[in-house]
Amino acid sequence: MPDLADRLPEPPARRPDLDDDFAGPRLRDDLWIDHYLPQWTTPDRSAARYDLGDRGLRLRIDEDQRDWRPEDAPLRVSNIQTGTFAGPLGSGQGTHRHRPDGLVVRTATPARLLWAPAAGRVDVTVSASADKGCMFAVWLVGTEHLDARDSGEVCVFEIEAADLTTARCGIKAHHDDRLRQEMTEVTIPVDAARPHTWTAIWGPDGTVIGCEGVELFRSAQAPLYPQFLLIDLWELGGRTGKYPKTAWIHRVRGWDNSR
């Protein structure tokens, strides 16, 4: 467990390449795609449910929302991400081939690299969901648009509503044999249901993940190829409890250090 005296470095002095507090009347389409991995399913299943307001963007799982794919039911998700990549219809080519049951492209999805640094820093201010059956997550995953091996993930956090005191974070190799799986469970140093900021820094020196300025994870590994940022709220079981189920994204700032 890292010493709580281990502080994260300050953000770069230059302006962020990505900076959004979701204060506009609509989601910025120059930064975000409001579908979860749309190539592997259909638009009615991948589309996010969300609201914009004074606090930022509220992701929702609604009672009438459909499962992301019929094969994965029950699993519903609302997500925003900073790009898409997929091969032709019927192919198995696309970002995040994470399922073992033969994902194929069901929806033609153009390549959009809105924010996809190969090294950088991201600060994400959020309030996690306390709703039954939900998990809230922020992660960076290889785009795969240059090479199918470029699939590694920096998992900034996964927080399950059943336990808002801990999170999982680290590195997931997926199809990248240059990486090894390196995930850990950490204690969240603040109340995760209230606004707090997570940070991920990755590059040639490795990967560092922290929360509220405190370093929680460090690795010599890093996926050094273009990465999309994804922020998502999942409902992992069947329909239960009250709706909508929600989590907040208050602000996102990102710096591309690969330029």
Rank of each mutant, 00 (worst) to 15 (best):
Leu4Trp: 09
Glu10Ile: 04
Pro11Asp: 07
Pro12Cys: 00
Arg14Glu: 10
Arg14Trp: 10
Arg15Gly: 04
Asp21His: 09
Ala23Glu: 14
Pro25Arg: 15
Leu27Phe: 04
Asp29Val: 13
Asp29Arg: 15
Asp30Val: 05
His35Met: 12
His35Ser: 13
Tyr36Cys: 14
Leu37Val: 09
Pro38Cys: 06
Pro43Ser: 03
Arg45Val: 03
Leu52Gln: 12
Asp54Glu: 15
Asp54Lys: 15
Gly56Asp: 04
Leu59His: 01
Ile61Thr: 00
Ile61Ser: 01
Ile61Arg: 03
Asp62Ile: 07
Asp62Gln: 09
Arg66Asp: 13
Trp68Pro: 04
Ala73Ile: 07
Ala73Trp: 00
Ile80Tyr: 00
Ile80Phe: 00
Gln81Ser: 02
Gln81Cys: 02
Thr82Lys: 02
Thr84Phe: 08
Ala86Trp: 00
Pro88Ile: 06
Leu89Trp: 01
Thr95Asp: 04
Arg97Glu: 11
Gly102Lys: 02
Val104Gly: 02
Thr107Met: 05
Ala111Leu: 12
Leu114Cys: 01
Val122Thr: 12
Val124Ala: 10
Thr125Ser: 11
Ser127Tyr: 06
Ser129Ile: 09
Gly133Asn: 09
Cys134Arg: 07
Ala137Cys: 14
Trp139Arg: 13
Val141Gln: 00
Glu144His: 07
His145Leu: 08
His145Thr: 11
His145Ile: 07
Arg149Phe: 10
Val154Lys: 11
Cys155Ala: 12
Ile159Leu: 02
Glu160Ala: 14
Glu160Cys: 11
Ala162Pro: 06
Asp163Gln: 03
Thr166Tyr: 03
Ala167Lys: 01
Cys169Gly: 02
Lys172Ser: 12
Ala173Asp: 09
Asp176Arg: 07
Asp177Gln: 13
Arg178Pro: 01
Ile188Cys: 06
Pro189Asp: 02
Val190Ser: 06
Ile201Ser: 05
Gly203Arg: 03
Asp205Leu: 08
Ile209His: 05
Ile209Val: 12
Glu212Ile: 01
Leu216Cys: 03
Arg218Pro: 08
Leu224Tyr: 00
Tyr225Gly: 00
Gln227Trp: 06
Leu229Ile: 12
Leu230Ala: 14
Ile231Lys: 05
Asp232Val: 08
Glu235Asn: 14
Lys242Trp: 11
Ala247Arg: 08
Trp248Asn: 13
Ile249Met: 12
Arg251Ala: 13
Arg251Glu: 12
Arg253Cys: 10
Gly254Gln: 08
Trp255Asn: 10
Trp255Val: 07
Trp255Lys: 07
Asp256Gln: 07
